[in-house]
Design a protein around this nucleic acid. Structure first.
Lengths: 191, 191
DNA sequence: AGGTAAATTGAACGAGTGTTCAGTTTATAT
DNA sequence: ATATAAACTGAACACTCGTTCAATTTACCT
């Protein structure tokens, strides 16, 4: 993730806000420029097109969330099992668990066919997520013996996290963060 | 799900095709009308607005997929465990596992804030899905004893299925259908 | 201070959007 | 066959979109 210039960062942050508030409707040079308090021409100047701006916003956001979860996990200083718990706890801590975040993600997914940059960003962030979990599962299985490979365990947990997040964002009240954590902990304990 | 008239069904099917092919870009009266081989005015005539047409398309599609999975499950004639396996097998059978299906779903999710009809359709189909699974988990737990409630087990499996489907659609080759089935079977066996 | 490059503005442009609606065609009932 | 209702057409409309670009402003270097 290379650092963004101040001007670019301003546009990226405005984009994230616009997408989180209005989803697809927020995907508009006029709305983004207004939020950034700049003129619409700057989007093309700095990013070449609105699609590239959105891809940049995606990369920035995805890695921001992942970094904070990994950081929480590493801070726990316990063994792999405790690090997994800390990771899960951070993921379901409330920042991500809002429909506003899903709104932005829906835009990103909608552009995945037409934007190689978004497809790349998705691949990169997803594999970082899964690789980190796989590493923790490997350490876990050194202690416990094997039922499922660390890679599959990581893929399963990633999917479970994504699915639960989707469930929570699509339907408020369907399931609570604590329940999500319990289900994820159950997954980890079942390996 | 009330039956659609022939004319409405034609538009609904054209909508599904348009959204599956082009995602958000296929969300266009002109493109849908062309696929249905009718004039654009018919969308407003029959459905009042394009949003209502899309909501109708969503209901139709969601219940079509769910019905086929439930049907396969019921056909298996085995006990609850076997029915769960048949359900999982049908879900990961290939019909749903295409990016084209995700493309349509991304449009539906994108409209969830602004279309009460889509929010309802999502709630209804999701709770039908989860309720059916919950019922199977209840029968399963009569035989096996309880670790996690049937409702939570169903929610977890629903989330796992959704997450795996998302993974497969977003990134071809990341995970195979057979692996998805294994992970789901692992979930079921871990309850 | 002066010159140049970079950043920025905002209006114009062509393209596309969903909705509206008068006119036409088709279906239905008698 | 006739009358009426329903279904359908397709053009027009007002609006929004992202991109382009000449002009202006700001930043940077000497």
């Amino acid at each position: 993730m290379k650092p963004l210039s101040k001007a670019k960062l301003k546009l990226v942050e405005a984009t994230i806000e616009s997408l989180m508030e209005e989803g697809v409707d927020g995907c508009s040079v006029r709305k983004i420029a207004e939020k950034a308090q700049v003129s619409t021409g700057l989007i093309n100047y700095h990013f070449g097109s609105i699609d590239n701006l959105i891809a940049a916003a995606y990369s920035y956001l995805a890695f921001t969330f992942l970094d904070s979860a990994i950081e929480a996990s590493m801070k726990s200083e316990g063994d792999a099992r405790q690090q997994l718990s800390a990771f899960i706890k951070e993921i379901f801590s409330g920042q991500v668990l809002q429909r506003r975040v899903l709104r932005a993600w829906v835009v990103f997914w909608g552009l995945i066919d037409s934007s190689p940059a978004i497809q790349s960003a998705q691949s990169d962030s997803n594999s970082s997520f899964t690789s980190y979990l796989e590493q923790l599962f490997m350490q876990l299985q050194e202690l416990k013996g094997k039922q499922i490979s660390p890679k599959m365990a990581a893929l399963g947990l990633t999917a479970l996290i994504d699915g639960l997040w989707l469930e929570m964002c699509l339907e408020e009240g369907a399931i609570k963060p604590l329940q999500c954590r319990k289900l994820c902990e159950h997954w980890v304990d079942s390996i």
